[in-house]
Structure formats: structure tokens, C-alpha cells
Amino acid sequence: MFSRMISKGLKNITIDSKRSHIFLKDTNFSLVIMRPYDLVQLSDLVGSGSEDILVWTGKIIGKSLCNNIQQKENIKTRKKLFELLLNNLTNLGYGLFSMIYVEGKKVEIQVENSLIKEITNEEEALLLRNLYNGIFLGAFSAAGTNVEEKQVNIPRNDDKLKFEYQFLEEDSQE
């Protein structure tokens, strides 16, 4: 029934339908499909440390994506690396990303259509914000950058996710 997998508008993904494997395009980086609620459940098992598990899971995703981007392309600047990362995340279904990058000072990232929109329970939806934070922290780590997250106040009726990171002193000099 599902043997003819059609992919419409899907970039950066290669489907090996013979082996039923999915890869990030032009890499050996394996991917699997999960539903947004599955990601919330990753943290369900640990109770009080659930935020940490999602940050940590996000870090693995961010770090490994950045490493694969760097292996695939000759990236000269951190800004370019982040542009490619956000482009990849958009293509992988994490939402629509936009970024304001102030060289040596800060990065502001905004996510529309985030996975959080799919989670009806407010507490669980907030939990999933940690996954995004982890992805960005993992990416900064892969880029060798030290940052500090700045809390962004988000109005309750705003369905966008916003993140702001300030480069720490030693990195802001570059």
C-alpha cells in the first residue's frame, strides 16, 4: 500500500526505498521518522529530569547535523553554518526558521510552525521548547562557540518560538 513513497517539496532528504532507509542528502547520516508527540515522550520516562533529557537529545541532533554540514561543505563562517543548519532543520520538519545574526554579539532565532503547535497539553508543549534550545546549544558547541542563553519573554498569544544567545567574551572577539 505504501510502496510508492512520493516526496513532494522535500529537500535534503534521500529515501532508499529498497532498504527502507532515510538519509540526509549526500551523506551517510541516517534519519528516522517520529511524530512530535514521540519526542515529548522521550522525556516522559525520567520525571523530574525531563527538561534535561530533551535539551540533551536536542544537543545530539544539533551537533550531528552541524558536523555533517561541515563535512559536506566548505563552511567559512559561523553565520553560514547556522544558515545551513536552520535550512536543514526546516527541511527536516522542525518548523520555519529565521535568524538575526549580529557578528560577535548575538544570534536571535525565531521558529514559526514549530513542533510545539502539534502538542495540545500546554505543559508538554513548553517541555518541547527544550529540544530546540538543545539543538542550538549543540550547534554552537559543534561550531566551537561559547554562548549564554538570554531568556526571551514571549506573549501568550504568540505562536512563534524565540531564542536569543549572546556570544561570550572570548568568542565575540573573532
Partner: peptide
Amino acid sequence: EERIVFVPPTI
């Protein structure tokens, strides 16, 4: 028609 997301199985 169901929203999905791609993640690395290494998680």
C-alpha cells in the same frame, strides 16, 4: 497527512 519530523536514530 500526519505531521512528522526526521531525527537521527542515534538518539
